[in-house]
Amino acid sequence: MQHTTAPSIAVVIPCYKVTRHILGVLAAIGPEVDRIYVVDDRCPDQSGAFVREHNSDPRVVVLEHAENQGVGGAVMTGYQAAIADGADIMVKVDGDGQMDPALIGDFIAPILAGEADYTKGNRFFDLEQIGNMPPMRLFGNAMLSLLTKLSSGYWDLFDPTNGYTAIHREAARHLPFGKISKRYFFETDLLFRLNTLGAVVQDVPMDAVYGDEVSNLKISKIVTEFMAKHVRNFCKRVFYNYYLRNMSLASIELPLGLLMVTLGSVYGGLHWMESAHAGLPTAAGTVMLSAMPILMGTQLLLAFLAYDIASVPRRPLQQRGRLARAVLPRG
């Protein structure tokens, strides 16, 4: 008779100036969790020492950084410790009290069911709740969501900056921890890395809760730093998925579409400037020679996007891992 053990669930809590809320967060974590990793990210309030002094939960393990590494660095430290201790699923919860630990079951359910490798919160699911979201935060998240769809390849996800997440060890152990962005871009960069692994990601509906915390999401950061990183990740993802690992019709559609749109735009622009300088209308034939490659190139680019949207990973890594272990010879 074969005996199976229940999956081990771990919670990772990055801590930075959260001493007012951390004990309440720890107390609200239910019995379904086996281990809790509190990561003191060089907190000026010494969150780690505070938890050691006031916490009585035997599940809590305090980890401390010698230098501040940002929320991403703290989460990855927790992931690595949990993987080393044999955790099967790792849930990331912030220590500021804005994420309800009662939702942990909702986040791990798709992973336990074998339907996903990674789950993340989505505060945009309930239309009634969206009205309570600050307008600037709503606009910023909408912009980031669009950029993240392009750069990560997960076209069916929204609210990319949502930090309430859960991940299966089969996906986490393949992550390049040394390359993932450690600060504000962490959640978005992680999605890009998961796509290159072929991991299945699902959104989990949750309410938007805002207390007295100060948002670090700035439009200037979206337009400058985040935009450059999204372009970088998009180029990397396209190269990895459409040229390095596989070739398809989409591998031809993208460069050909870009080339035709560029040539049509440059040709039309140059002749329009010449005609404007001479004070003459642009010839109809010239307009057609410019418009045709632009239209055809646009169609090719849309065809590439359609292929990319249809290529969102659907088979979880954990299923592939179980299949590989099942067919490997024993002894």
Score class of each variant (00 low, 15 high):
T262S: 14
T4G: 12
P31V: 01
N132K: 10
S311F: 04
R315K: 14
D156M: 10
A87E: 07
S275R: 13
I9V: 14
D40N: 14
P101V: 05
I104R: 05
P160M: 09
R232F: 12
L270D: 07
A10L: 06
W272K: 14
G211P: 07
V61G: 00
S311D: 15
G131N: 09
I22C: 09
S152T: 02
D34N: 14
P7R: 01
E128F: 08
I130V: 15
R315L: 12
L317N: 05
Y184V: 09
L147W: 08
L305E: 05
F158M: 12
Y210S: 12
D189M: 01
M288W: 13
L280S: 13
V231I: 15
A278H: 14
P110A: 06
W155Y: 15
A324F: 06
M260S: 09
V11S: 06
D117A: 08
I36W: 04
A81D: 02
P160I: 06
M1H: 10
V327P: 08
N246P: 00
D159H: 08
R123S: 12
N68D: 00
T19I: 15
G321C: 10
D57V: 03
R330G: 06
P101K: 09
N68A: 11
K236S: 14
R42C: 13
I167R: 04
K236R: 15
Y243K: 10
S248R: 12
G73L: 11
D100L: 09
L146S: 08
T4F: 11
G257W: 12
A283N: 11
I180E: 04
E213P: 01
A116R: 03
R322A: 15
I13R: 00
M90R: 04
Q319A: 07
L103Y: 12
N216E: 09
Q299K: 11
A284N: 10
K92W: 07
M133P: 04
A49G: 09
P110W: 03
V71K: 10
F158H: 12
V38M: 10
L157R: 11
M227C: 12
C43E: 00
P14L: 04
A27P: 06
T77K: 13
M260W: 13
V231T: 07
V61Q: 05
R169E: 10
G30H: 08
M273V: 13
K218D: 09
I108L: 06
S47E: 10
V266F: 10
F50I: 03
F139R: 07
G285S: 13
N241I: 01
I130Q: 15
K236Q: 15
